[in-house]
Amino acid sequence: MAIEQDEIEKIAELARIRIGDDQIGQVTQRITEILGMVDQLQAVDTSDVEPMANPLDATQRLRADAVTEVNRREAFQAIAPAVENGLYLVPKVID
C-alpha cells in the first residue's frame, strides 16, 4: 500500500525521530515497500484466532513486596549527560 510522506512525518513525530528533508523521500519509499510486504497478512482469515503475545502462553509470577534495591544514584548519574543536585536536567518542560 502506498503511504504518503506526510504520514511518515507524523509517525516520525510520534516516534520523536528527526528525519532530514533530504532523507524523507527515501525513508517513505522504503517503508512503503516494507508495508507492502506486510500487507499479505490482510488476506488471512483469523476470525476465531486468539492473538498470541507470548510464545509459551505463560502467566505472570509475582514478587514479594520487599525493598531489595539500595541507593546507587552516584553510579547511575556518573553516566548521565546532565545532572545537578541529584536531578537529571532537561530543557525546560512546559505543562
Binding site: I3, E7, I8, I11, A12, L14, A15, I17, V27, I31, I34, L35, V38, L41, Q42, V44, T46, V49, E50, P51, M52, A53, P55
Partner: peptide, 24 residues
C-alpha cells in the same frame, strides 16, 4: 517507524493484532 505505524490508532487491529493471530 514501521513499528510505530503498526501500533498507531486505526492500524492496530489490521497490523499488530492480525500479526499476533497469524503468529498463533
Amino acid at each position: 517507524l514501521v513499528g510505530t505505524y503498526a501500533l498507531s490508532a486505526g492500524y492496530y487491529d489490521a497490523y499488530y493484532k492480525k500479526a499476533q493471530q497469524v503468529r498463533r
